[in-house]
Design a protein around this nucleic acid. Structure first.
Ligand code: FES
Ligand code: FES
Lengths: 143, 143
DNA sequence: CATAAAAAGGATAAAAATGTCTTTTAATCT
DNA sequence: AGATTAAAAGACATTTTTATCCTTTTTATG
């Protein structure tokens, strides 16, 4: 459903949500160990997210990636859309076509409801929702 | 969640459920067009399923793949386990570890229930369940 | 302005998934 | 028995995903 890259990206953004803001940017070098994602690869993913305006970044000394107030209101789907594309996550359990069309597949009535519920979660859950009240970083990044 | 290969395999087995029995075996050549899976690749997947006893086959003239009475009682999960492995489908939304452990991830409470419901469907739905009453082959194999 | 720090970008590499082809084995039919 | 047929097996090819490396551009700061 979600690619590995999307999982990585989500974890990266969660880290930023917990550890960064406009005044405290964080370098990939300092976060890749905690979220268990290869440094260069995580950098690529975050750059992609930044390029699409899902997260923020500045270059140079004191630079790094961070989440602005606005960024925190982004949904998980915003991340997934950039990395995997919407099509991938919404595709039918049995094929490539979009789910919920006029011609549902055999499995649709069995799993379709679950799938669209999952998508709703991605769409309706913001970064802020996930981190509110939490500061115990480690629990966020299981191996 | 499910690999493309698993989807192919499920579609192949569904075709066999609708079009084969002990006395009417079917060759890959005759089915790959209907289920929209490359011939040689489908052959490989079916061979794998047969090797693991999920479906049946015999070689030579009048040979082919088919589902025995027993085979029809197999669950979707039996197919997925052979092709993808159980780990892959059960893994956590955010990582590689198994879901539902003592240390659930941040997303678990949001999506975990959906995921385990999906797995339950795979485990509890048999081939027979899917085809009962149906003979309209085409609706089963959307593009 | 010089310098160093950091992301951005691009090229490349490695691994996994997907797909094809050829040879071997087993069943059936003359 | 011999010819034919079809799956089984395995080698090979392609594509996609995942991952690394190196150069360039931008920016803060002394
Ligand atoms: S159409 Fe196949 S899961 Fe919805
Ligand atoms: S532990 Fe991550 S989804 Fe269950």
């Amino acid at each position: 459903m979600l690619s590995n890259s999307s999982k990585y990206a989500i974890k990266g953004v969660l880290y930023l949500a917990l550890n960064s803001d406009e005044d405290h940017k964080v370098m990939v070098r300092d976060m890749h160990g905690v979220v268990h994602v290869p440094e260069a690869y995580l950098a690529k993913l975050l750059q992609e997210l930044s390029r699409h305006g899902v997260i923020s970044s500045t270059r140079g000394p004191k630079g790094g990636f961070f989440l602005s107030k606005e960024d925190r209101k982004r949904s998980l789907m915003d991340i997934v859309k950039v990395i995997d594309g919407e099509k991938r996550v919404k595709s039918c359990v049995l094929g490539v076509k979009d789910c919920d069309t006029d011609q549902p597949c055999v499995l649709h009535k069995l799993v379709g409801a679950n799938k669209s519920k999952f998508i709703k979660v991605l769409e309706n859950t913001t970064i802020l929702d996930l981190i509110e009240g939490k500061r115990d970083v480690e629990e966020f990044f299981p191996v």
